[in-house]
Design a protein around this nucleic acid. Structure first.
Lengths: 228, 228
DNA sequence: ACCTGAACACCGTTCAAGT
DNA sequence: ACCTGAACACCGTTCAAGT
């Protein structure tokens, strides 16, 4: 009982670096320098410890990311869900989207079909809500799973495209981002692109996720002409 | 006229490494070792030249990928397009999808909103066809661009998720892919997931791109109850 | 039980020099 | 005009050793 500060009752050298400290430092690093800069070595530097010490707290870099992700998902607040199944599916998908959009690196980690196995329940309520809503809308469980995956594909695609677009000025353009030369379009070969050329940049700036989501949900779950 | 073998009429040391050779070696490397292994250094090794020599033919790694991508897109054959606008949009999106699915790294490169500026016309016909089809279906040019982008998000998401899932055995799982433990789902908290748990792996194996695409296209372009 | 430096096997990219 | 080795500033990860 003389060591009430070591809860596990372990003996030996007291740990100087906690899981919470590591995740906090990682978040600080991401917020300050961008998530591309989150490396094992830099994180160790941020913590003031040797790079190799980190491997006593984290299995590898992937493990670090998964821990960070679950922590992030756990902190996001759950919206109140509408009764109507269509609106409920949309609310859940939007919550999923917004949580990931705030931390685009998470989407990168989650581009894995087995990603479900890595999430804890604080993040899984979105999946549950979408599948449940689809079933309530009259789909079979199989169709509901397919609907979830299609919504997932759309969501992750939107986030990744936007995340990579956003790094424009942040990164010293490794892929040359020469402004799109729309005048180059040959009206004879690509007439619609040529006609729309000058409006494209303005249109590309819009956030079209919500409309696209509604279209996808309607097509997946309510294709028999919504008339209620 | 004494140097008809140097078409540009240049003088000096003849080039030993051509653009075609570089792209061919890169393809060989990708096919043999996987695209994660395509590095400037390995590619140079494959060609039997110094890594730094490559920088006389390629601006940087991003430039190499874009060249490879345009080359790949140029070789893909164009399907005959249906007259019906819905089927035409779907055919174009599917062609886009299939071309990228064969080379998933391309999708990674293309997760950039400015990607259009990097493609040449052999790849742009899909964009043109989708935008044109949407307009023919009665959408405004603005809506047509939004529709294209939503289809693009869905397509790129599907490919990236599948590409990263496929590396399961290829890569020494850096992110732990412990088989999803579906029994862990608490029926009280995630009832639908718990109920569907045992069927999930089988459902996840299915290719749902075509159905999802149809749903999205219907929702985007034909939401006013298709009854023709 | 916890932390460490040195080392391994890599990256992309630049620069001054060679032919 | 083309090609080169050496070097710079990084990676993730492992291992034997220290406290």
């Amino acid at each position: 009982m003389s060591r009430s500060t070591t809860p596990h009752g372990r003996t030996g050298r007291p740990r100087r670096t906690s899981r919470a400290e590591i995740l906090e430092a990682a978040r600080r690093l991401i917020d300050r320098d961008g998530w591309e800069k989150l490396t094992i070595r830099r994180l160790a530097g941020e913590l003031g410890i040797g790079a190799t010490t980190l491997y006593h707290h984290v299995r590898n870099k992937g493990d670090l990311l998964v821990q960070l992700l679950n922590d992030h998902a756990g902190q996001a607040e759950r919206p109140t869900l509408p009764r109507d199944p269509r609106e409920r599916v949309i609310a859940a998908a939007t919550a999923m989207h917004d949580t990931l959009a705030a931390w685009p690196w998470a989407a990168e980690v989650l581009t894995t079909d087995g990603f479900l196995g890595l999430l804890d329940e604080s993040a899984l309520w979105t999946v549950e809500t979408i599948v449940g809503g689809a079933i309530e809308a009259g789909r079979t469980p199989e169709q509901a799973v397919v609907a979830f995956r299609d919504i997932w594909y759309y969501t992750v695609g939107e986030i990744l495209v936007r995340a990579h677009s956003g790094r424009e000025q942040a990164q010293a353009e490794s892929i040359p981002r020469h402004e799109i030369d729309f005048t180059r379009f040959d009206p004879a070969r690509v007439p619609h692109l040529a006609a729309i050329a000058d409006q494209w940049p303005a249109l590309a700036a819009h956030d079209t996720y919500p409309q696209g989501l509604r279209a996808l949900v309607d097509g997946l779950l309510f294709s028999e002409c919504p008339g209620s």
